[in-house]
Nucleic acid binder design. Structure first.
Length: 891
RNA sequence: GGGGAUGUAGCUCAGUUGGCUAGAGCGCUUGACUGGCAGUCAAGAGGUCGUGGGUUCGAGUCCCAUCUUCUCCA
């Protein structure tokens, strides 16, 4: 693996007078494009919500995908931003490699300027050049650019002459590289907008190195100091489903400049980690772990890993994505655990410490990203708890590994053992390898990889899904949501496709020109219902979801005539109950802030027809009194019969000024919908009741923790409350009835319980006494045959009693050979045989054999150990015979 | 979404192919020794074996369902 010394003195020709702080660099970028009439937008949340193909925003354009796909319009056709991105997989971004070099990251910022059908190559190129050379004052001599060379394949694309000619005006031709399709043609996916791109590279090497190899030879060669800093994408084609290209009616610009790399170039350092983006964090790591960055190669890697990962984890928690065991949350957990692991092994930190870096991060990034500074305490708590839990996992794993080593019969530990340790107990395999090698063992790497592959195949097979192409029926227009005003409408089908998954089987996804169906979002479930063709045939709509800003209806079949006009109708009952729960959620949010304090912020919510769930930040258990107060507050608001005041399409600024709460991690459009009930104002796309009176009543069912500093309340409203009280009431009435309608059922039950324990003790005592009596009788009946104390008799005890009796006798008398029989019912008979151990050992008696053979008389079978065995059967009439024959076994 | 593991005394855990009357350590209670404490010894209390079904003469153990917690993969 490539390793670079990162502390070399600055040795390349940047003007040293201009040391620019990263914050200034970011600000200048945005200011520059603001002057060029761009609207500056904040970074979208990193966690994606309505794109099933993507867990995290992984490039600057991801949040704008819907605009490029034509599913919506941006508020301005010129935008600029700094977008936080997260990459943990892909060819050049394997999580396991971050930290080993000086320029790959999980979280990074992408500076971008955007044109949606507005300016094109000329402006994009000249502005990029102007910003780099005149504002940032990068020496023109160390810059190189690339243009698309064209392709000979099926696409038959020409050289991007337009871009070449534009660059020729700005830079000598010997600094323009012609790049192939892999480097210089950008596609969003299998289908959709795409086009050639032009990259700007910067050569940061020393003069000696430059003298040895010309920079142009190193462009796109993965050299750590000849790096691409900016990619200008010219979207001019549309890739169709059949693979062919067509010209786009409107051409777009999509650019992305790696912020950390830019800082490296401008600050005259040779590693992203030496910029002021990372240095404060690294300093703090040095302080906490008592190490020095640059002194030891392995420790340097660990420090870079931690510095990088804490940013990724903190930002995603700030965006509402907590570490968890599935989906995006699991990615975050893995990142954090990797950091803990490096700290554990190479920096010798056996207790939580990464959370202590959040303060520095917040100080440094808080101005540009208020979601970090605003939630500092929460982020610290969550990280600390997660660190603790992983350290516990490591502790357990160490114990298990010790056991494996102890029981090892060879110097190589098998792959499946190591895999079990990893898969079931979460113990990292690299740590296993390290410990094994320290103790002189090796591990079967191939066996481990095979097991891992098997597991991957299993998962893949289970989640396999095939998606067919869309069948388009009408020109694509924006699908309108009309479900705020109506639950039923005449609609036309605009496109549909078939999806097949293992779990759901064959399903169809339908898109209409307009729809009253609410798509899952904002915690609220998607509507269910049906649509009906002109012949009156109905097809059920099972769910509604949003994907890249398109509302998709899920059905099991297609209509006979797809071009018909359909009547789409939402299930009213479900929608009403859901609306009650959604409005109640808003009131609950308000009540919590009122009762617990304004630190309470929504961290998640789920609203469906049956109940509502609300997660929020709060650092201690909500007491019973507080819950009561919250419930009372919400019910007071319901009693006040507050009307819904809805404002659609208000500007974000106005809504905030009116007191609406915006949530971290939520992506808002340019105009928003504000929902007001009394003092509760929230930005919300969900469906609500017309008046809080419709909710009828609100009842909290449970309160608990979901993570460090995050609590969860589950509650019900309306009919569910009635049912809840009805059920409780019925149960209570039944209890009362059973107790002959006592006035104080609780006391009565308490008394019953006390009596029950007392009675149980009495029974035990009686049984003991009875057994004692029986014991006495039995001792008298023992006959001595051949030195064996023998008895075969029927006793009036249950199976347990007989067992106790036999063992009691066994303790007091030697040389016993006992066969007991009893008949608990008319259809059941039981034989028990007890033989003292000394007899078993000396004479080879076998109680199991005795009961098996005697069992035949009672039409049954059994077994046990050689000194105690039981058999059961269906024929109590055979008991006397069985007892008579018992003697036979004494010989 | 798929797989693996886990649930037994207040806590940490044992419990073989179903079969000694469910155990150990720590903790708790009581008593003894010591001038008192620490300590040692002795006795004792404490268990719906996650829940609900099933198979069996017999289930902590096997089967099915379900829940909790942990963990890996997608």
């Amino acid at each position: 693996m490539l390793y670079l010394k990162t502390n070399e003195p600055n040795s390349f020709n940047l003007k040293p007078s201009i040391f620019m702080k990263s914050q200034e660099i970011r600000a200048q970028f945005l200011d520059f494009f603001k002057e060029k009439s761009h609207t500056i937008v904040p970074s979208a949340p990193m966690v994606t919500k309505d794109d099933p193909t993507l867990l995290f925003v992984n490039s600057g354009m991801a949040p704008f995908k819907e605009f490029f796909l034509g599913n919506g319009k941006p508020k301005s056709n010129r935008l600029a931003d700094s977008q936080k991105c997260l990459r943990v997989s892909g060819k050049h971004n394997d999580l396991e490699e971050v930290g080993y070099d000086t320029y790959h990251h999980t979280l990074f910022e992408m500076l971008g300027n955007w044109s949606f059908g507005d300016y094109f190559k000329k402006e994009a190129i000249s502005w990029a050049w102007e910003l780099l050379t005149e504002v940032y004052k990068i020496d023109k001599d160390i810059l190189y650019v690339s243009v698309f060379e064209g392709s000979d394949d099926a696409d038959k694309l020409p050289l991007d002459q337009e871009a070449y000619d534009l660059w020729k005006e700005l830079i000598p031709e010997n600094k323009i590289v012609k790049g192939n399709k892999k480097d210089n043609f950008w596609e969003m996916g299998e289908q959709g907008p795409c086009g050639p791109c032009s990259e700007i590279h910067v050569d940061l090497r020393s003069e000696e190195e430059k003298a040895k190899t010309p920079g142009i030879a190193l462009v796109n060669m993965d050299h750590p100091h000849v790096v691409e800093i900016w990619n200008l994408v010219f979207m001019q084609y549309n890739r169709k489903a059949n693979g062919s290209l067509e010209n786009l009616p409107h051409k777009h610009i999509d650019t992305g400049m790696g912020f950390e790399r830019l800082c490296m170039a401008l600050q005259g350092v040779k590693s992203n980690y030496d910029t002021d983006v990372f240095q404060p964090i690294i300093k703090q790591i040095e302080k906490i772990t008592n190490t020095t960055y640059g002194a030891n190669q392995q420790q340097d890697i660990a420090i870079r890993v931690i510095a990088d990962h804490v940013r990724a984890v903190a930002f995603s928690i700030a965006d509402g994505q907590l570490p968890s065991n599935t989906g995006a949350g699991y990615v975050i957990r893995r990142i954090l655990r990797r950091a803990v692991r490096y700290g554990f092994t190479f920096l010798d930190k056996k207790e939580p410490f990464i959370y202590q870096l959040v303060a520095i991060l917040s100080e440094q990034m808080g101005a540009a990203f208020p979601e970090i500074s605003g939630q500092k305490k929460l982020i610290e708590n969550v990280i600390k708890e997660e660190e603790n839990s992983f350290l516990r996992t490591l502790d357990q794993g160490l114990i298990l590994l010790d056991k494996i080593i102890e029981n090892a019969d060879a110097k190589e530990i098998s792959g499946d053992k190591v895999f079990e340790l990893y898969d079931t107990f979460g113990f990292p395999v690299d740590l296993t390898a390290l410990i094994l090698s320290e103790k002189g063992f090796t591990l079967d790497e191939k066996g481990f990889k095979d097991e891992l592959q098997k597991q991957k195949n299993r998962s893949k097979a289970a989640s396999e899904m095939s998606t067919e192409d869309w069948t388009l029926l009408a020109e694509e227009g924006t699908e309108e949501f009309i479900g705020y005003d109506t639950l039923s409408a005449d609609v036309k089908l605009t496109r549909y496709r078939k999806v097949v998954s293992k779990k759901e089987g064959e399903m169809f996804q339908l898109v209409f020109d307009a729809t009253p169906f609410y798509p899952e979002g904002g915690g609220q479930v998607g509507d269910k219902g049906f649509f009906e063709d002109s012949q009156g045939n109905q097809i059920a709509i099972l769910d509604t979801k949003k994907e890249n800003n398109v509302i998709i209806h899920f059905t099991k079949k297609l209509p006979k005539e797809v071009n018909d006009i359909f009547k789409a109708t939402v299930n009213e009952k479900i929608r009403e109950n859901t609306a009650c729960n959604h409005t109640a959620t808003h009131l609950l949010h308000e009540a919590l802030r009122e009762v617990l304090g304004i630190h309470v912020a929504q961290k998640g919510s789920a609203v469906n027809a049956n109940y509502l769930r609300f997660d929020f930040s709060h650092f201690s258990k909500v007491t019973a009194e507080e819950l009561k107060a919250v419930e009372a507050y919400v019910n007071a608001k319901i009693a006040m019969q507050l009307p819904l005041e809805e404002s659609r399409n208000v500007s974000m600024e106005k809504a905030i000024a009116d007191g609406a709460m915006a949530l971290f991690g939520e992506k808002y459009g340019d105009t928003v919908r504000a929902i007001k009930f009394g003092n509760s104002i929230e930005l919300c796309g969900g469906t609500h009741v017309k008046n809080t009176g419709d909710i009828w009543h609100f009842k909290i069912k449970s309160e608990g923790a979901v993570a460090a500093g995050i609590r969860r309340i589950e509650a019900i409203t309306n009919e569910a409350v009635k049912n809840f009280y009805d059920d409780n009431n019925q149960a209570l009435n039944q209890i009362k009835e059973l107790l002959n309608n006592v006035k104080a059922p609780v006391k009565a039950v308490q008394k019953l319980q006390d009596e029950n324990t007392a009675l149980q003790k009495q029974i035990e005592q009686l049984l003991r006494d009875k057994a004692k009596n029986v014991t006495g009788e039995i001792i008298n009946q023992l006959q001595e045959i051949n030195g064996v104390q023998f008895l075969a008799t029927k006793v009036d005890l249950d199976a347990n009693g007989i067992k106790t009796l036999a063992f009691d006798l066994g303790k007091k008398h030697p040389n016993l050979f006992l066969v007991f029989a009893n008949a608990p019912t008319n259809e059941k008979a039981l034989l028990t045989c007890y033989i003292s151990k000394e007899l078993v050992n000396e004479r080879g008696y076998d109680a199991g054999k005795v009961v098996r053979e005697l069992g035949k008389f009672i039409h049954g079978g059994g077994g046990g150990q050689n000194f105690f065995a039981t058999a059961g059967g269906k024929n109590p009439g055979g008991i006397p015979q069985a007892l008579e024959n018992a003697k036979e076994y004494l010989s």
